[in-house]
Amino acid sequence: MSNQLHQTVVETDVDNDFEKQINVSCLEYLLMELGPLALRITDKLEKYSSSSTRESNGSGNGNDNKQVDDFHYGGVELFQNESLVSNEINNQMLDNFGFQIGKILIEQLIFLKNDGISTKMDEILDIMKIIARDVWKMIYQKQIDNLRTNHRGTFVLIDNSHRLISSMYGPDKHRISGLYLNFSCGVIKGVLNQSAFKANVEADLKSDGSVHYTIVVI
């Protein structure tokens, strides 16, 4: 009798925590801020690695340092810094952010679906469906609009409007949206990786605003 009571109490606690709610804007602002964060980190890491060379050279680009640290305009200044944005490391960084989050989310989803028992998903199509439905819903509050496959290891996920990118407007849109798409690709890779699949993922922003993710399983 006392065992049963204890179990009930524990279950209710777990339910309450999983049902804790926040304003969706919190997640949106956090994801929005990943771009400037990546740029700042890249800049910092470059400075750390080149600081030794700078000391030995005796010269330094003190002005550049000040520019990156002292911006006040909500990250926009960073986006306008050409050399910073074109650095390949940013893409990898956002990819990595997405990768880690994809890994954790798929674990949570499978954990929840199977009452606490971790099972490996064997069917790649099932995982793709989970990505298209559940993972996308969790991160972007909408599902993937279209899922196509040739049943031979290639998948195309079509998102008619990427939440973050569709609210972007400006001359740098294509370049910066490319930056954020690395994050989405990373999420997909992370999910697949956790399910012991490896894939090449590429995202393509079409002129009508839709994003096509092409996933080729290796």
């Binding site: 999983f18 049902e19 804790k20 709610q21 926040i22 304003n23 969706v24 804007s25 919190c26 997640l27 956090l30 994801l31 952010f97 880690q100 989050i101 954790i104 989310l105 949570q108 969790m138 991160i139 509050q141």
Partner: peptide, 14 residues
């Protein structure tokens, strides 16, 4: 508009 805090917590933690 509300969502479960879980994704937010996990994203921030990551």
């Amino acid at each position: 508009d509300k969502i479960n805090s879980e994704v937010f917590t996990l994203t921030y933690g990551s």
